[in-house]
């Protein structure tokens, strides 16, 4: 069943097409990978889905409702959460407070006690209990990214969009991040991930979409993608 669907999505910045007539869909509880060279429009597509920017044309629907044009906070309340490529943690709050903010504001009608409980659950789910009272500026990059993921998870999403959560991590940390992502999917959350770490993409994703110059040039299973001539041309030509 499709949970998220986009058709004919367009976005241009000053004449340059960042996302060019892209159709896509996401099935419930799958992990969809979004890959492509730098500047291919992956993050722009995330921004369009999460409501950070408005599409020039095209529609995006989530659970059958049109969400294109909605404000980010409303999209978040409907159950679509995201992380940022460069972690945007709240610097003057502790790790726990960061996550707590997600729990407090993410879902309407959560009372404080429930939000606190949810926060502690998530901290242990992602393995951040030991760092709960640390400042996000004082912990390793891998952990900072984990705080982002935890804060997004605290908003109780049905769909989680991860923007390069593995960039800059060492192989061990990448392994841990992969484990966390499968665990999140295991809890019933649908995942869309932008990633450059091919090993992670190929082993985690059920399906992959390849963007190049804003256009969708290929789509299919990891196996299909790794054998696709168009994709190989794009990456070798880079």
């Amino acid at each position: 069943m499709q949970i998220l669907n986009g058709s004919g999505v367009n976005k241009a910045f000053g004449g340059r097409k960042a996302v060019d007539n892209v159709d896509f869909h996401v099935d419930e509880n799958e992990i969809l990978g979004l890959i492509g060279p730098n500047g291919a429009g992956k993050t722009t597509l995330f921004n369009l889905i999460s409501g950070a920017i408005k599409a020039d044309s095209g529609t995006i629907t989530y659970k059958g409702r049109v969400i294109s044009g909605m404000k980010p906070y409303r999209i978040c309340h409907m159950g679509l959460a995201r992380t940022f490529q460069k972690a945007k943690n709240f610097p003057d709050m502790t790790v726990r407070e960061n996550v707590l903010m997600g729990a407090v504001f993410g879902k309407k009608g959560t009372d404080n006690a429930a939000a606190e409980r949810k926060t502690d659950e998530i901290l242990s789910f992602v393995g951040l209990e030991d760092f709960r009272d640390k400042s996000p500026g004082d912990i390793a990059l891998a952990l900072q990214k984990r705080v982002e993921v935890a804060r997004a998870l605290a908003t109780s999403p049905d769909v989680l969009m991860l923007d390069e959560v593995m960039a800059g991590l060492n192989p061990t940390e990448v392994g841990e991040a992969m484990e966390l992502i499968s665990k999140i999917r295991g809890s019933g959350v649908t995942i869309i991930m932008i990633e450059h770490v091919m090993k992670a993409i190929m082993s985690l994703c059920d399906r992959i979409i390849v963007l190049h110059h804003g256009q969708k040039i290929e789509e299919g299973t990891p196996e299909h993608i790794s054998n696709s001539k168009t994709v190989i041309d794009v990456y070798l030509g880079e």
Binding site: K88, M93, F105
Partner: peptide
């Protein structure tokens, strides 16, 4: 209040605040 917390989140990172469900405007 939650209102005050929302203001604090906006000060610390408005983009992030919007995406965790704060109607920042």
């Amino acid at each position: 209040t939650r209102f005050g917390l929302a203001l604090k989140c906006i000060a610390e990172g408005e983009d992030a605040a919007m995406h965790i469900g704060i109607g920042s405007t």
